[in-house]
Amino acid sequence: MPESYQPGSREDFDRLYRVAYPRVYRTVAAILADPAAAEDCTQDAFTQAFQAWDRWRPDAPAEAWVHRIAVNRAISHRRSARLRGVGEVLRRLGRPGHAPDPADAVVQPDLLKALRAIPPRLAAAIVLRHYHGYNNREIAAALGVSERTVGTRLRKAADLLRSELEPSFSLEVVEAFPSEPDESFAQR
């Protein structure tokens, strides 16, 4: 995070984009399951940041500032997607539904799936802390909350993630000790 930027400078914003785009994208991808939606939200966040680049004040890191915009966008996108999903469920009531594709469960990494299942602000706090290495002050700047709130969210997020991952943990334990062939076959 030692990058220094000058507000309003086009070259500096281009540099910020090159450095921060993949990182912001990964944060948004941890909140949204759809890669195209994650890209849209990230690009929109950079567009919004670019339009306000003259007014940006370097009291908070620029990447945290873009993160804040992107996370807010992802949250609103997820909310509207959930509303669309409710509408879709209501429309399909009474019809035979599509069975979930087993290939999705194989391809989708379990931890990312669990992250997308918990509230997006908590997921963002986890990614910023444990993937990007932000400290509480930087997370507070990125999420627009106090440092105390960041601590509370991190604890809550870790608890929720553990509860989401519990079934897969038990599966891993069984696979790690294949001494009982019947049980492992039963699991498979």
Binding site: Y17, Y21, P22, P35, A36, L111, L112, V127
Partner: peptide, 22 residues
Amino acid sequence: ELEERLRRQLDRVQPLHTSPRY
């Protein structure tokens, strides 16, 4: 352990299209 798993899984996530829209 979980942190290492998170790193590995998020490292695999690559942006689809990186040309700046702004």
